[in-house]
Amino acid sequence: MPNVTVTIGGRSFDVACEAGQESFLRYAADQLDQEAQALLGQTGRIPEATMLLMAGLMLADRTGRAEERITTLQHEIEALKEEVTNLRNQPAPAPEKVEVVKEVEVEVVREVVPPSVQQALADLAERAEYLAHQIAAKAGTAE
Rank of each mutant, 00 (worst) to 15 (best):
M1V: 01
P2Q: 01
N3P: 07
N3F: 09
V4D: 04
V4Q: 00
S12E: 12
F13S: 00
C17W: 08
C17I: 06
E22C: 04
L25E: 08
R26Y: 01
R26D: 00
R26F: 03
D30G: 15
D30P: 04
Q31T: 08
Q31R: 12
L32K: 04
A36I: 00
A36E: 01
A38W: 04
A38M: 02
L40P: 05
Q42G: 05
Q42A: 13
R45Q: 06
A49H: 07
M51K: 02
M51E: 06
L52H: 03
L53N: 09
M54L: 04
A55V: 11
M58H: 04
G64N: 14
A66Y: 02
A66G: 12
R69H: 13
R69F: 10
T72K: 15
L73A: 04
Q74M: 11
I77Y: 09
T85H: 10
N86C: 03
Q90M: 02
P91N: 09
A94F: 08
E99P: 00
V101I: 05
V104S: 11
V106N: 04
V109N: 07
R110I: 14
P114S: 10
P114H: 05
S116E: 15
Q118F: 00
Q118Y: 12
Q119E: 15
Q119H: 13
Q119A: 14
L121G: 08
D123K: 12
L124A: 12
E126T: 10
R127S: 14
R127G: 07
Y130N: 15
L131F: 14
H133S: 14
Q134T: 12
Q134D: 09
A136E: 14
